[in-house]
Design a protein around this nucleic acid. Structure first.
Lengths: 229, 229
DNA sequence: GGACACTGCATTGTATACAGATTGGAAATT
DNA sequence: AATTTCCAATCTGTATACAATGCAGTGTCC
């Protein structure tokens, strides 16, 4: 996470990081218009670098833009979240298959140690922490797949759906660890199809439940953005 | 393709479209530094909207950026092209599977008519035309998959690898049509796994041959950009 | 009472100015 | 001859100004 006040960074980078964090944390309401002058004042940059950062965030799917009207926090229609999850599943299933073929034994051992150290859940963790650990596991797998483009894309998707993963994390604390261990075992045994099938089950099975989860997500979004400002 | 001179479009949009077309057509050499003042003059916009467009193109993978030094045409290392192809294969294999489950019978018929009308190759087509038809077929499949995020991503990937698809199109004019018909048949029969396997073969088999093709691609890039200006 | 036009304010779109960083090349030094 | 230093020209990074567009609130007309 880039420091917003770090003067070594360019104004564009500072604005970019700050706004992205704000979008991820739902400090903007979905569909809310972004006032450039006000935001520029808040971030202590001028509108020129601010708009460069906003343009980048539009390309990355965090904001939308309507000519003549300005920039908006992107909306999260249930269908869109569903599609993001679906793409994430496609990517991660492929990554599991590729990891089974390309991960080194050392990498597999390292990931197993990670699982040993971080689990099982003692019941004290927040949803945020659980998601972070979950993400870390999946990022390991993706690194084993040796494809930087896919890795960047997964990072982008994770940033965009993180909030909604909080919601359904509660219901599967226990199962997650076991499923992760099974996936890792398939990779260790060099069984791409089994790894892919397990990953498909691990992510894909939740797809149907997501639509309902989004409603709860929305209520939390409005709560949090109302409570902070 | 947006008209560069269309004054109804904003300066940012005009610059964005023009630069993207230039990158796709390799009017910049890989790694070439982009002079903002000169490019702004050529496109008849000021540096402010130009830089907004350049920032968008960085996020979309068409350009790179180094703070303090400026914008550069992205380089195409063999490894990167390989990874883009690989991601494309992952996406399209998933799309074939999803299309088998979700395409309507009418859509399948429509795509079959498209194949009837555009093939077989009479030997008169250029590589560019062949790639355009190939892309159109694959875009149909992707539309059947009902995922806008994946569709956008595929469009982005196609724009970024189009040049290299010209190179290996020559060698497989005939086979392409047959493979397309087989894939469509699997979708029609609602056999997701067969569709996926055929798509995997159709795209994935070429992955190994790509690295060598890139060298030829590079020579064409330098020829074309030298010849036009 | 409701629809519509008008007007002033707020906001975006773009050009330009200028400060600071970078680069390439000439001159000086080893 | 090769390397380094320094300087001027060039280029990027950012702020600001102003024009153009959109928006909301008011009043008017039907």
């Amino acid at each position: 996470m880039p420091d917003i006040a770090d003067k070594r960074l360019s104004s564009v980078d500072r604005a970019y990081g700050a706004i992205k964090d704000m979008v991820i944390a739902y400090r903007f309401k979905p569909g809310e218009r972004i006032n450039e002058v006000e935001l520029a004042k808040r971030l202590e940059v001028s509108r020129t670098p601010l708009r460069e950062a906003l343009n980048r965030l539009v390309s990355e799917g965090f904001l939308s833009f309507i000519g003549g009207r300005g920039f908006f926090c992107r909306e999260f229609k249930p269908r869109e979240i569903y599609e993001l999850y679906q793409l994430r599943a496609v990517l991660e299933v492929a990554a599991a298959r590729m990891a089974s073929e390309q991960a080194t034994d050392e990498e597999v051992d390292e990931l197993e140690r990670f699982l040993d150290e971080t689990g099982p859940d003692d019941g004290q963790r927040t949803s945020e922490e659980m998601v972070a650990l979950d993400e870390a596991f999946h990022n390991h797998i993706m690194r084993f797949a040796r494809n930087a483009e896919m890795r960047n894309l997964l990072n982008n998707l994770n940033d965009r759906i993180r909030f909604f993963r909080w919601i359904d994390m509660d219901s599967r604390r226990q199962r997650t660890q076991n499923e992760h261990r099974n996936i890792l075992d398939a990779i260790r045994c060099r069984e791409p199809e089994r790894a892919a099938a397990l990953m498909q089950g691990h992510i894909g099975r939740r797809l149907d439940e997501i639509t309902s989860g989004i409603k709860e997500g929305y209520s939390r979004i409005y709560l949090s953005s109302a409570g902070i400002d």
